[in-house]
Every structure is written in structure tokens, then in C-alpha cells.
């Protein structure tokens, strides 16, 4: 069993690279990404799992990085928004004007990316179920729905 009692050097697989940095046992993955690695694409919006702005992919599944400890991510494949290289959902967000202030956007895009990979056949109902974990306060969501629909092969 993995035990981290004090601040220790940990090693995480992030965006295809091995990244090492100091972590305390209570550091969240969000804190580790932002403060230790400078990956500030994941945003703190509530640090309580309610808003989804900090969403990253862990082994392909969307996870709120404020609810996961950095230590829990050891041995897993973490993908952050910085790890996406102009994938179709990013282009779709641009084309459909699916953002305004942009603060929630990385979280939404990571959740969408997970959905596209895991449920390429998603219906609107499934899209809603997945994306209800994220809050956007600027757009009406209609634009975000258009964006994800435009890249899902099933739609």
C-alpha cells in the first residue's frame, strides 16, 4: 500500500510525460497541477466538486481534480486541457461560440472529451447527464450542446 506521511516527492503521468514534484498528503490533484506543475488550465471554481471547472481526465474518465488527492493519481494516466492538441471539440467550441469569459471552458472541454471517447453514440440525455456536473454562467448552454453534438459521430 502506498503511504505518504509528509511532504514527499511523487511521480505522476501527466499528458504523456512523467512529472515529479513535492506533494503533501492532503494536496489535491488540482493544487498539484496548478501550484506545483504550473498547469493552470484546470480552474478552481468551488473546490467542492460542484462546478466542474477543474475537470481533468484520469484514465480517460472525467474527474474533478479538486476532489482527488494528488497521491491518489499515482499510477494513473492524467490528461489536462494542456494535453489536448487542437482536438475537434476545441474547434467546435470556437466555431459555435460555446464560451464567453472562458473560465469554465477547460473543464467543459475535458468533460466533453471524456464523453466523446467513452460514449461516441451519446444521446442528448447522456450528454446532459454528463455535462450537468459543470456550470457555465455566461452562455445559455445551447452553444455548448451545439458544439458537442457537432463532434459526436452519432449525432
Amino acid at each position: 500500500m502506498l503511504q505518504i506521511l509528509n511532504e514527499s516527492l511523487i511521480e505522476l503521468h501527466i499528458n504523456g510525460e512523467i512529472r515529479k514534484a513535492l506533494a503533501r498528503p492532503s494536496d489535491t490533484l488540482l493544487f498539484f497541477l496548478r501550484e506545483r506543475l504550473g498547469l493552470t488550465g484546470a480552474k478552481p471554481g468551488c473546490e467542492n466538486g460542484d462546478c466542474g471547472a477543474c475537470t481533468v481526465l484520469v484514465d480517460g474518465w472525467p474527474v474533478k481534480s479538486c476532489l482527488m488527492l494528488a497521491a491518489e493519481a499515482i499510477g494513473h494516466e492524467v490528461t489536462t486541457i494542456e494535453g489536448l492538441d487542437k482536438v475537434p471539440i476545441q474547434q467546435a467550441f470556437v466555431d459555435k461560440f460555446a464560451f464567453q469569459c472562458g473560465y469554465c471552458t477547460p473543464g467543459f472541454i475535458m468533460n466533453c472529451q471524456g464523453l466523446i471517447n467513452i460514449h461516441p453514440d451519446a444521446s442528448d440525455e447522456v450528454i446532459h447527464e454528463w455535462l450537468q456536473s459543470n456550470i457555465c454562467r455566461c452562455t445559455s448552454y445551447q452553444e455548448i450542446m451545439e458544439a458537442i453534438r457537432s463532434v459526436l459521430p452519432s449525432q
Binding site: L39, T40, G41, A42, T80, I81, E82, L84, K86, Q90, F93, V94, D95, F97, F99, G102, T105, P106, I109
Partner: peptide, 14 residues
């Protein structure tokens, strides 16, 4: 298309 579009969809917007 918004001037800040690609910054914002890539997480590079600060």
C-alpha cells in the same frame, strides 16, 4: 471568431 478563442479553449488563457 473571437480574438481570445484559441487561448480560451486550450487553457492557455490566464
Amino acid at each position: 471568431i473571437r480574438k481570445d478563442a484559441w487561448e480560451k479553449v486550450t487553457g492557455r488563457a490566464l
